[in-house]
């Protein structure tokens, strides 16, 4: 799997990239939506984009809308990973073209569960082992 992690926080990009690396993913990072669009235009299309909402320059919702205007990027699976947990925000993101939504804080297990639902991760058994190393916490996120 090839993935693009889009978040203005280097810390969060690192957490997400480590989680995806456990799954064997090849990960690229971008610090805002505009940089992410440039990455998509410049290289091979990844399978997955994990996208924060609140970012400078170009926010995540705008990125999703821009990406969905490009038919050649239709195969890109987009998951919002954000603190924006209100129902209407989730609805806006899904309407714009996001496939899934994960609310921060999340554990690696919660991320893997979402990826499994999208057909982008393997069994939960392996995921849980990996998640314990990354987060060490209990199940959370995704449904606040």
């Amino acid at each position: 799997m090839r993935a693009l992690v889009v978040d203005d926080s280097r810390t969060m990009r690192s957490i997400l990239s480590r989680s995806l690396a456990v799954l064997g993913a090849e990960v690229e990072e971008a610090e805002d939506g505009a940089v992410a669009l440039s990455r998509l235009e410049a290289g091979a299309l990844p399978d997955l984009a994990l996208v924060d909402w609140n970012m400078p320059v170009m926010d995540g919702l705008t990125f999703v809308r821009e990406a969905r205007r490009r038919p050649e990027w239709r195969s890109l699976t987009i998951m919002m990973v954000t603190t924006e947990g209100e129902y209407d925000q989730i609805a806006r993101a899904m309407a714009a073209g996001a496939h899934e939504y994960l609310v921060k804080p999340f554990t690696a297990e919660a991320l893997f569960d979402k990826l499994e639902l999208l057909g982008l991760a393997g069994s939960a058994d392996g995921s849980n082992d990996a998640g314990a190393n990354l987060a060490g916490g209990e199940e959370s996120g995704g449904g606040r």
């Binding site: 926080s9 810390t11 969060m12 954000t82 603190t83 924006e84 947990g85 209100e86 921060k104 804080p105």
Partner: peptide, 11 residues
């Protein structure tokens, strides 16, 4: 990032 997450959940 921590205050962003805490703030988002307060929001």
């Amino acid at each position: 990032e921590l205050v962003n997450i805490v703030g988002g959940n307060v929001k």
